[in-house]
Computed example of a mutant assay.
Amino acid sequence: MIKQNSKTSFSLRKLTIIGVLGAISAILGMTPIGFIPVGPTNATIMHIPVIIGAILEGPVVGAMVGVIFGIFSIIRSITAPTVISPVFYNPLVSILPRVLIGITSYYTFITLKKAGKRLSTIVVTLVWSGVIVYLIRNFVIQLNSYNTNEIGLWQLVFSGLLIIITLLIGYFSYKKFKEQSIEVVLSAVVGTLTNTVGVLGMIYLLYGKWFVEKTGGNPEMVGKTILGVAIANGIPEAIVGMLIVTSVVIGIKRTDKR
């Protein structure tokens, strides 16, 4: 009887977390809150609840939150349509990649925990270094644009603050939570790239030429155009994902230990 109650409680916990994170993902997807300006592009954070659910509760929870995320992508494409909305009516574009986010995030987390601290530290150092270089390069570009009055002061300030926040979170997360933050950071990166590559990859396979034409690109350069979109969106989203997921997951794990 005790085991049965324990199992029921465990299942209820998972269902509750799926509901809460799914609701957060839906709110992010249906409102402007789900988009953060990072340099010249907007980074979506709608996939972040999926990654958090996978790291904290496993691949099943992550996958289920991903399903909810995908369903609301379809709903948003119907209720707030754009020229490219029809591609998201297809579950292979809107749902499948979002389910995979939870799976890849979780197994990245587990694999790195087993790989050992030294290898994980090297990998995460390279990732963080790449992020800082990207942000500094973007800041320099924006500084030049500000000098020629092409962008506003708030955009320049935001880019500068993002560099500072990235450095601080990277330092404190490693300093205080060495053995946990490394796996979390890289899981966030992998989960984010799964979303970007998965969605754009399916669009390339199923709607490539049509998608490029609708976005005003050259239909003879489908691969290069979609790759450009992936880089422009994927890097900022990975940066924002690393910052938010690391902060939330480590904060929750620290609270659980008390």
Rank of each mutant, 00 (worst) to 15 (best):
I78P: 00
V67R: 14
N90I: 03
G70I: 06
T79A: 13
I68Q: 06
I55H: 06
L56Q: 08
S85H: 07
G53I: 09
I55G: 04
S85W: 03
G70H: 07
A80R: 05
P59V: 11
S77W: 00
G66P: 06
I71L: 13
T82D: 05
I78C: 01
I75K: 01
N90F: 12
G70S: 09
P49T: 07
I84Q: 15
I52Q: 10
V83E: 14
S77Q: 02
Y89A: 15
A63L: 15
I68H: 10
T79Y: 02
P59D: 12
V60H: 08
V87D: 03
P86E: 04
G53M: 12
I84A: 15
P86I: 09
P86Y: 05
S73R: 00
P86S: 05
G70L: 10
Y89G: 15
I51C: 12
S85A: 13
A80L: 02
S73I: 00
P59L: 10
G70D: 06
F88P: 05
F72D: 01
V61F: 10
M64L: 12
I84P: 14
T79L: 14
G70F: 02
Y89P: 03
I52L: 10
R76V: 00
S77G: 03
V65H: 05
V67Y: 15
N90A: 10
P86Q: 05
F88A: 05
